[in-house]
Computed example of a mutant assay.
Amino acid sequence: MSTLSKRLSLQWKDAICLALGLWMIVSPWTLSYIDAMNPSWNAWIMGALIAAAALAALSAFHKSEEWFSVIFGLWLIIAPWALEFSGMPVATWNHIVVGVLVVLLSLWTVVTASDTPGLMT
Rank of each mutant, 00 (worst) to 15 (best):
E66F: 04
I25L: 06
G73Q: 03
F85I: 15
L22C: 00
R7F: 02
I71D: 07
I71E: 11
M120T: 11
P89Q: 11
W75A: 09
Q11P: 05
K63R: 15
D115I: 02
T121P: 12
D35C: 09
A19C: 03
A15D: 01
R7C: 00
E84L: 07
L55G: 14
G87P: 01
G118N: 01
I50V: 15
A43P: 01
D35T: 15
W93G: 02
S59V: 14
S64H: 14
I25A: 05
S40R: 08
T30N: 11
G87K: 11
L8A: 07
T30S: 12
K63T: 15
W12Y: 03
S69V: 13
A19V: 07
G118V: 10
A53R: 09
W93A: 08
L74R: 08
P80K: 10
F72E: 10
L22G: 03
G73W: 11
S114V: 04
S32L: 10
L104I: 15
M88C: 09
E84R: 06
M1P: 07
V102S: 08
C17H: 12
A60H: 13
W67V: 14
W81Q: 03
L107G: 04
L105T: 04
T112P: 00
S59Q: 15
A79D: 14
V70C: 09
A57T: 12
V26I: 14
S9V: 05
I34P: 03
S2M: 02
